[in-house]
């Protein structure tokens, strides 16, 4: 109850937001290109869901489209396929974002896990990935790992955005 109440404004954190996306996209590429790690969730998508839930003055649909297009280019998938998945994720987040903000951490983590499961099912249907046993496990581990990481990411991003606004 003693938490400071404030509303995030886009103009106050736009550079933080843009560089955050760039850093997240670089980190995602690094995991795949340098370390061959496939069970880690996309940090860019988690950031997209975070900003969709927190920055309520924007719909973030265009951002989802852009990130999707760049992901398609990086992963050599048909242009617009990841964009479609990300736009659907953002659309579902938009419908619950006000109540999502008030959820406790565990409930938020479960919601994010379910969203990412939905994204993986869509990826499975659209791309028909060819997966040996180890990669099959990694593929379905992604939503679980995102659910575990979400509370830490949420807390970190809130702290950083608070600093970006008031420092």
């Amino acid at each position: 109850m003693s938490d400071k109440v404030y509303v995030l404004e886009f103009c106050q954190i736009k550079w933080f937001l843009i560089f955050g996306y760039l850093a997240a996209f670089t980190f995602d590429s690094m995991l795949k290109l340098s370390f061959d790690i496939y069970f880690a969730p996309s940090l860019t998508v988690l950031l997209l869901l975070f900003w969709t839930s927190q920055l309520t003055c924007k719909t973030h649909l265009f951002t989802a489209f852009l990130i999707g297009i760049f992901t398609d280019t990086a992963m050599n998938t048909p242009l617009g396929s990841h964009a479609l998945i990300f736009i659907l994720l953002v659309f579902f987040m938009l419908r619950i974002r006000l109540s999502f903000k008030s959820y406790p951490a565990w409930q938020q983590a479960i919601t994010i896990g379910l969203y990412l499961t939905f994204a993986q099912v869509l990826s499975w249907v659209i791309f028909e990935p060819v997966l040996p046993n180890s990669q099959l496990i990694s593929f379905w581990l992604v939503p679980w790992v995102s659910a575990i990481l979400w509370p830490f990411l949420y807390k970190t991003m809130l702290t950083l955005s608070h600093r970006a606004m008031f420092d």
Binding site: S29, L33, S34, T73, A74
Partner: peptide, 14 residues
Amino acid sequence: TAIEPIEKLATLPI
């Protein structure tokens, strides 16, 4: 071409 610098940065560790 737009994401090429990001990919180059991402392959720095390897």
